[in-house]
Design a protein around this nucleic acid. Structure first.
Lengths: 245, 245
DNA sequence: CGCGAAATTGATGCAAGTCAAGGCATGTGG
DNA sequence: CCACATGCCTTGACTTGCATCAATTTCGCG
């Protein structure tokens, strides 16, 4: 867990938006959008910005979650493990998602930075107090939970019923539609996950992921540079390879 | 979708609990528990009891959800399908779960009665009005969403990383812990799902499910009668076969 | 009893896993 | 600047677990 924390302690007039928040990339998509300026000020007084290195664990499986956070930049992977070490990634969170679980003290998951990330973290207690007085906030958290539930169920279909080829194509399609702001027909991006992580997300082995990527490349569905950078000339075609119509 | 509906239109004093609700099996576990007597009366004035036959579809994939419902009795399966017909069950709902999605007009799922079920259904509009005035209700719905999210993620681990044997054992363990009120070390129950449904829930084929059940039987982990009735002499042992420690 | 649906069982094939070797970057110390 | 180590990724040869195809068998029910 890395450093660079920075309390915002300026004397701000209540009706103004705190400077840290005004410049915040997550201000509109994130939970903060439902708060009044004074609530935002209250929250920001207790918030800390953190930069976290790729690969470092944020919350271990079974640990108490004492903090909530908005992801400002980067990708977080949520995963579960069996006692013998088999692992499954059960969700990815992209900026500006909200992280941490309202009303549940225990996390059954471990959260780990897939890329380098920036977060804006708040202590549990402050969030819970705000939830009690701002009904819009709970509504917002509820919506986020429903969105995650939909994503989880979509992925269950992928895990249970798709072939390795379709799984890998589905993953690439997911990344293409979540990372790249472009929504045109062609797109290009860096994979936020290693082959090992992709395998854990898709319920496959590293070797199978690698072979399927090679196959998609040979079929002209994607082009690959440096094994991390992917170019998708035709997103619709990728989607068809993913078994989605 | 089957019949036997019965409006509750008695003249009830506001401070009393409606008779239909007083006798309702779902009153405590379900969403209704957070409502005041007058809100409960309001809700019950618009509610209908329905009995639904096994196998009949309640909401199709992509259809609008115009009703919410509490499950009074039975098991509902939520599933998703690919365009070529491959199917995956993404969740089971047991009484007294709440069904239907708050704040989302489209269901990306289809809901089907796995067993014969009884539900208590309310129109969308009434629920939404109550949510607006009863903050406790949204909290309750939020909690249900988080519970379903946890279950979905647990199942992702099962789908992605467990062997066929572990998957079937996991399913039997799930049913044992959800159907049977007994929490002792031994238990006995009827499977609410056919082999085909079990296969769709586990991402396997009917044949593999059947073979693994036979194998568990030969290993003495379970006993089977009439192919639906299952006896688990040692639940902890079943749990170990499910890959859970 | 006899029909149809559901479940079991067996034989065979194939997709994905396993095991093992090698490639390709990036880093480090001599 | 090179020699060597290290961490990913790719590729190949082989194995295996589950799917597929094909009969039966059992169950539920008129």
């Amino acid at each position: 867990m890395q450093i660079v924390s920075e309390h915002s302690r300026k004397d701000i007039h209540n009706s103004d938006i705190p400077v840290v928040c005004a410049a915040c990339e997550a201000r509109h998509g994130g939970v903060c959008s439902t708060l009044t300026p004074s609530q935002l000020t209250e929250l920001s007084r207790h918030s800390t910005r953190r930069r976290i290195d790729p690969g470092s664990e944020m919350v271990g499986q079974g640990e108490a979650t004492n903090n909530y956070a908005n992801i400002i930049r980067g990708v977080v992977k949520l995963s579960k493990m069996l006692s013998d070490g088999r692992q499954q990634i059960v969700g990815l969170q992209f900026a500006p998602d909200f992280m941490g679980r309202a009303f549940t003290r225990e996390s059954a998951l471990s959260a780990e930075a897939a890329t380098g990330i920036d977060i804006c973290a708040f202590p549990r207690a402050v969030v819970e107090r705000l939830v009690a007085e701002a009904p819009g906030l709970e509504h917002r958290l509820h919506e986020q939970a429903l969105k995650e539930l939909d994503e989880a169920r979509d992925w269950m279909l992928t895990l249970g019923r798709k072939t390795a080829q379709e799984k890998v194509a589905s993953f690439l399609y997911l990344i293409a539609t979540h990372i790249d702001p472009e929504h045109g027909n062609a797109t290009e991006f860096d994979l936020p996950l290693s082959r090992a992580d992709i395998a854990d997300y898709l319920g496959l082995t590293i070797e199978t992921v690698s072979r399927q990527i090679t196959k998609l490349r040979k079929d002209g569905v994607i082009r690959v540079e440096n094994s991390r950078r992917v170019i998708v000339p035709d997103v619709d075609r990728l989607m068809r390879f993913a078994g989605m119509d």
